[in-house]
Write a protein that binds this DNA or RNA. Structure first.
Lengths: 194, 194
DNA sequence: GGTATAAGTAAACAGTGTTGACTTGTCAAG
DNA sequence: CTTGACAAGTCAACACTGTTTACTTATACC
């Protein structure tokens, strides 16, 4: 079942960086196809043809491995840049696309297990750094952070609902209607003042 | 540290229902003060002065125990009932109150560990049964479910953001402003048509 | 009083992430 | 060419987890 029958013999050359990368690759592959908590450290190590202890040696803990895998993944590739007025539309289209089941395979996989204590704290850092902060910066104004939080809430919540209702809940509608709806709501989240 | 020095002696009377309740009480108490995944089955059992195996005998698994504890907790106590037009306002006020750090102690505790696969799956069932379904029913119309999903997304997402940003992110604003904002966004989520 | 039946228990299972002591390959200096 | 140092890699154990099986024991009925 575990691949890597070749090249993983105990007598391979000792290359720190190559081994590190091999672990990282195995982790990404397994996390992507099976989720985070479903994959044990020992399985990742076996898949990489490497001893379990190396995971902790190179990444501190399983959680560190996850953090590094997630860090490679782009969340909102350059969506906050560009005309702020059209931001709701851009965001809506991006979300609608992801709602149809597309989006990074890793993201899809992690959405399934998006709840581990490990995953959560890593996710928190990422949400703040990759969504809230850029949004706040691009918005400007006293209540920029609050408005950014509202949008972020909606975006994150859609992921949660998708998990509860199944992908069809959002994807089973007319794409244009969905985009229009999302655009309207996001714009509403962004509106300044009480 | 673990209380219950009295009344938990091995020679106590054998009362299935009383024992069940004792486990349930211990679980609620520990979950509330420390979160879900931080409390092990053995600790719950010890606290209840009972053998670990009884947890699985009476609740199937630790997850079942959690489900029963959560089920006792009211999510939206009768908010969907009443005038549908004022629903956004009622919901907004409820959320704003919870945003200030109030809300069930259990809810606050579980929000911290709100990531465990167990907790998540139990939560999913609860979100559907206690939020999405009633909302869908009260809304009516072709896209009732979709509109309910939008509101649910926003509500759940606010919880997630609160976890990321800390409670102050939402609570550190003028209450009236916050309620007005939330009301507007929720109303927007509920609007029919694309 | 004896006995069936349920309540409760002890001990083990199979798994997890993690750690420290150990071995071994590699590469540079003598 | 050999030797020695240091990093890379390994092994076995630790301290847990939730869960199950086989067992003991108290209670209630005949």
């Amino acid at each position: 079942m575990e691949p890597d029958p070749s090249g993983a013999s105990p007598g391979r050359v000792r290359d720190r960086e190559a081994t590190r990368q091999r672990i990282l690759d195995s982790a990404r592959e397994l996390f992507t196809s099976e989720g985070y908590s479903q994959v044990s450290s020992r399985r990742i190590a076996a898949h990489a043809g490497v001893n379990v202890a190396l995971i902790n040696r190179y990444f501190g803990a399983k959680r560190g491995l996850l953090a590094e895998v997630i860090a490679e993944d782009a969340v909102f590739p350059g969506i906050v840049e560009g005309d702020p007025a059209a931001l709701p539309r851009r965001l809506a289209e991006h979300i609608a696309t992801r709602a149809r089941g597309e989006g990074t395979p890793l993201q899809r996989a992690l959405e399934r297990s998006a709840a581990d204590p490990d995953l959560q704290s890593v996710h928190q850092e990422r949400v703040r750094a990759a969504i809230i902060e850029p949004l706040t910066a691009v918005l400007g104004g006293d209540d920029a952070r609050l408005r950014a939080s509202m949008v972020t809430a909606f975006v994150l919540g859609l992921g949660a609902v998708k998990r509860v209702e199944g992908a069809t809940a959002l994807a089973g509608h007319d794409p244009d209607d969905l985009v229009a709806r999302l655009t309207r709501i996001i714009a509403c989240c962004l509106e300044p003042g009480g």
